[in-house]
């Protein structure tokens, strides 16, 4: 989207209980976010990922006609799928969502310099908002699935996985490096805590 006039970005600054709020002033950061170009709505939230937090985002998307959402909270590796699903429920394309990591990469590592952590949070949110301005809706790619599995290693974990897969009707290759399966467990005499035999 290139016309700024059409942009309506919503920014949510998560407290994560005291994980973020304990180091920086999320209200002040949200206020800063509201001054960023394209931002139509900015607020702080106790737990963005909680039911209440997600409901709020969904409601705001409709109430404030948001067309981009930025959540400043934890790592994308943790909650990006959560919030993508959240904005989808409100009818927004999930790829119009962006995250700023102000927990793992900010408050959790800069607790001894809260002011600098606050400046960093503002920058990270400004960057996420800047990226959000240029996001475009995308569709997931559907790929076919081969109905077969491979288990590498024929010890107790591998055998257990292979049997479960096979019982669920899935063709399973059980690959073992040694001449026979059983692994370490086959070497054991009795096993704890039931003292029964291992084979």
């Amino acid at each position: 989207m290139s016309e700024n006039d059409d942009l309506r970005i919503g920014v949510y600054v998560c407290h994560c209980g005291s994980n973020i709020e304990g180091v920086i002033d999320t209200k002040a950061v949200a206020e800063y976010a509201s001054t960023l170009p394209g931002v139509a709505w900015a607020t702080d939230s106790l737990y963005c990922c909680a039911d209440s937090g997600q409901n709020e985002i969904e409601q705001d998307i409709n109430e404030h006609n948001l067309n981009r959402v930025v959540v400043a909270a934890c790592s994308v590796r943790l909650h990006e799928p959560t919030f993508r699903a959240c904005v989808s429920r409100a009818g927004m394309n999930p790829f119009l969502f962006e995250m700023a990591n102000i927990r793992e990469q900010d408050t959790w590592v800069h607790s001894h310099e809260p002011e600098a952590a606050q400046e960093k949070a503002k920058d990270l949110i400004a960057a996420a908002v800047a990226k959000a301005r240029f996001l475009t809706p995308l569709d997931m790619i559907e790929v076919p699935v081969t109905k077969a599995a491979m288990v590498i290693g024929g010890g107790i974990a591998g055998i257990s996985a292979a049997l479960d897969l096979a019982d669920m009707g899935i063709k399973t290759y059980l690959v073992e490096k040694e001449p026979s399966i059983g692994g370490r467990m086959a070497q054991l005499n009795k096993t704890f805590p039931t003292m029964d035999c291992s084979i």
Binding site: G154, A162, L163, A166, K171, V175, E176, K177, S180, I181
Partner: peptide, 15 residues
């Protein structure tokens, strides 16, 4: 595991 019709055992085999 060796008798299950859905399991193909590939022993002495490396990926």
């Amino acid at each position: 595991a060796s008798r299950h019709p859905n399991i193909e055992l590939l022993t002495y085999t490396e990926v």
